[in-house]
Design a protein around this nucleic acid. Structure first.
Lengths: 285, 285
DNA sequence: GGATGTCTTGTAGTAATTTTACAAAATAAT
DNA sequence: ATTATTTTGTAAAATTACTACAAGACATCC
């Protein structure tokens, strides 16, 4: 509440401030929250009409948000909305490097955007709970997803939870068989249909472990056999060679999980993380 | 050129269309490219003055870009600029999961943005050339950066270039000693001052290999001993626990390098990538 | 229960900003 | 050198954002 005006995006400010508004101002707030994309194209008169009120009310609404005026509202909204039309240009032959760079980073940005919009918070919450109460966590991934699994393990073990990562199908299967209730498997697979992963997950499941799947396709075989299936949407057009954008989105989601678990017991976590940090001090000259 | 108007962001449109503009319009274009952030706050009169021209010229400039008018320009710019004021909110105790999610993904987006703005294209080009002509490539990284190195190796080996990855300092050092001219080492380190990496890089360098460093800090010790040091900027505030945003940015940059190398010999690469793909077919049920 | 005060909202007018019409320079062509 | 064409700017029109103020709603007090 105190750092009200410092908050990054206009929509958040509206959401958290909506209670303190007069009823006609609230009408404006509600309309803006529902149609941010449209508001950008409207004039203040249009918005007043759409919201069923008058122009001065719109202005007063803007001011209460800490904005200079109506123009400021539009600009603020524009900044926070999913950038542009995004024709999702893919890299093509003959592109110069700056062009490749631009296209790809833009695709990356959009992937993050899509993830932001498409994530199911309840599932995320459920995953976070599972991880927080896990007796131990194993991360599985093969091929490209192996690197993601590794990254995840490298984060979570710092929380003091016993964590292992396997990017080898045999090791996964063997280790999965040894799991039991209270254990959690995080299975990473872009396609969600990699046979090796599916096998390992089935074994882990039978052994009584809970499964969190992180995949690019919501309706994949992996998603079906998971306790929590986190689908990371992305159009993946930049170059169909290697799933780059979905990898970024997966990592971001894992980061969120990590932080959310870490936050559940902040004081203790902080201390533990500092201990890890200290242990690395003499690794730097 | 044909899909001129479909291009996502205003700045790109300006950059690619600047050639077709009249000289006074070009003045506007140049000012906008240089001070996009400022333009958002200016009126058309101000901008005309700043650019040393008149209002109608500004409007004509907007129209040539395919925009409706000056307001449209401002809104378009707002969309593409690093989102909001970004007080770079860090996740704090008591944040709900949706809030954590939001903050972190926004930080991720901003990291990509920063990377986009801060990258030195010449260095990138140089790195791309080195990699394209490499006899073999070794990827080094320890700790968290090890996962990045792994991801990189997993991409590049598909191009038919002999690629190895080591996340173990001893193996790195030993392997580095065996390198020679024509070989390339890609060293990943967020801090750029991890002793183990520095050691390995020095050995590789003495052995005659070229070094590409991917680091979060431009002025780090690693950057100094590299042939090409790619600094990936990022503010890294979300949670100082683990360098999440810089990791994403690093991966993105590596992806760009991969694609740019792949594109140098598109036909051949395409065939090779397809071969890799085919080899995985029966890994899915 | 009506009068008074405060708080909320809208009307109507004002100011600012964007946009257009048109004419003056500047450039190119004959 | 004159005329046509393009390019640019001046000045006025139109749109849009904003403000002053008053009417209406609501509560409070006599």
């Amino acid at each position: 509440m105190e750092n009200y005006y410092k908050m990054s995006d206009v929509l958040s400010v509206i959401r958290s401030g909506i209670e303190d508004l007069r009823s006609s101002e609230r009408k404006v707030a509600e309309y803006v929250l529902k149609n941010p994309e449209t508001v950008i194209t409207l004039s203040i008169t249009d918005l007043a009409e759409e919201a069923g009120t008058s122009e001065p009310t719109v202005i007063r609404f803007c001011r209460k948000l800490g904005l200079k005026g109506f123009m400021d509202l539009k600009l603020g909204l524009a900044r926070d909305l999913p950038s542009s039309q995004y024709i999702h240009e893919s890299v093509s032959e003959g592109d110069t490097l700056p062009r490749i760079f631009n296209k790809m980073l833009k695709a990356a940005k959009e992937a993050i955007n899509d993830t932001m919009n498409g994530m199911d918070m309840e599932l995320l919450e459920k995953a976070s709970q599972l991880l927080a109460s896990a007796r131990r966590i194993e991360f599985y991934g093969v091929g490209g997803s192996g690197a993601v699994a590794r990254d995840a393990q490298h984060k979570f073990f710092r929380l003091g939870i016993p964590c292992l990562v396997y990017d080898d199908p045999h090791m996964q299967a063997m280790s999965a068989a040894l799991l039991g209730p209270g254990d959690v498997v995080v299975a990473v697979s872009h396609t969600g249909s990699t046979k090796d992963i599916l096998d390992s997950v089935r074994i882990a499941r039978e052994a009584g472990a809970a499964i969190i799947g992180i995949t690019g396709h919501g309706k994949s075989p992996l998603a079906r056999i998971c306790d929590v299936a986190l689908a990371v949407h992305s159009k993946e057009a930049a170059l169909r060679l290697a799933p780059m954008t979905s990898r970024l989105a997966q990592l971001a989601v894992i980061d969120v999980l990590f932080v959310s678990v870490a936050m559940r017991n902040y004081a203790e976590t902080k201390e533990r993380l500092n201990m890890v940090k200290r242990s690395l001090v003499d690794k730097r000259p």
